[in-house]
């Protein structure tokens, strides 16, 4: 009897693993196919049955893809834009979160609700006027246009406020007695303790804007200003059926972020469970 249950639980475990492996393979196969295709010769593309290992490794597909579109430039654009947005959001969020968590003044709570309400407004609702305003400011097809509208968002403010509120009030009173102003208190005492919270929300802000698609698609015009996702999108539509180049470009775009993820996994998973809200 005992033997039987042990046996059946072992069978169950094996079935579970089999199922999980099948799903895992499904997750990975498209990436392997991407890589395999990126090394194929054009003549091998349409072979039937599909060939997983090309007879000859065409590394020059990557060179060709880099020639067809300036992926280095796209990378620089994406890095610059995403870095500035993240930095901006961290600064504006620290300042605002500090106020909402630790300073009392009349009207604060109403203001906080107004801040909160910006979260329920989808970008789509405001994108047309946003486009007109940014154009009016002379920022169409510029870095300012890509960065400045996003240097403050409610989500990091709320996240950091939550964190600042957990710190004991005594800390502040002690600092006050020593004649420490708000800015110095924030800079010298709160920020060092908030480092883990900042890195979590910073990573998420970075990832969120790294993949931003709609706004850069709308606000950029020239190839030089395109960010990585938009640059790849035009590459896809321009190269049409040149799948070997398309896949080489996709690998160029995918590999660095996957590598970063593999090295900093714990941070990513922690971030998802801590922030939860970001899709």
């Amino acid at each position: 009897m005992l033997k039987e249950t042990l046996f059946s639980s072992k069978v169950l475990t094996i079935i579970t693993h089999l199922l999980l492996i099948v799903v895992g393979v499904t997750m990975i196969v498209p990436f392997l196919w991407m890589f395999s295709t990126s090394l194929k010769d054009v003549t091998e593309l349409y072979e039937y049955p599909p060939k997983w290992i090309p007879s000859h490794l065409n590394w020059q597909n990557y060179i060709k893809a880099m020639e067809l579109a300036p992926f280095g430039r796209f990378y620089l654009n994406s890095l610059l834009v995403t870095f500035c947005i993240t930095l901006g959001q961290m600064i504006t969020a620290c300042l605002a979160a500090y106020v909402f968590a630790r300073i009392e003044f009349p009207g604060r709570d109403i203001l906080f609700v107004i801040y909160l309400s910006t979260m329920i407004i989808p970008v789509q609702v405001t994108i047309i006027p946003l486009f007109l305003i940014v154009k009016q400011l002379g920022w169409f097809d510029t870095y300012q246009g890509l960065i400045i509208p996003f240097i403050a968002r409610a989500f990091p403010i709320i996240f950091l406020r939550q964190f600042f509120m957990t710190l004991p009030k005594d800390l502040e009173d002690a600092a006050k007695v020593d004649g420490c102003g708000h800015l110095r208190f924030l800079w010298k005492i709160l920020l060092p303790t908030a480092r883990p919270a900042l890195s979590t929300i910073g990573l998420f802000t970075f990832l969120f804007h790294w993949r931003d698609y709609l706004w850069p698609l709308v606000i950029t015009n020239t190839t030089e200003m395109r960010t990585l996702p938009v640059g790849l999108r035009y590459f896809v539509s321009e190269q049409g059926t040149q799948f070997h180049y398309m896949m080489a470009a996709s690998i160029i775009v995918t590999i660095p972020i996957v590598l970063i993820y593999l090295f900093a996994q714990k941070q990513f998973i922690k971030g998802v469970t801590m922030t939860g809200l970001k899709g």
Binding site: R211, V230, V236, I257
Partner: peptide, 10 residues
Amino acid sequence: ISSMVAVSAV
């Protein structure tokens, strides 16, 4: 974590 555009391409 991978790019939606790259994934769509493949």
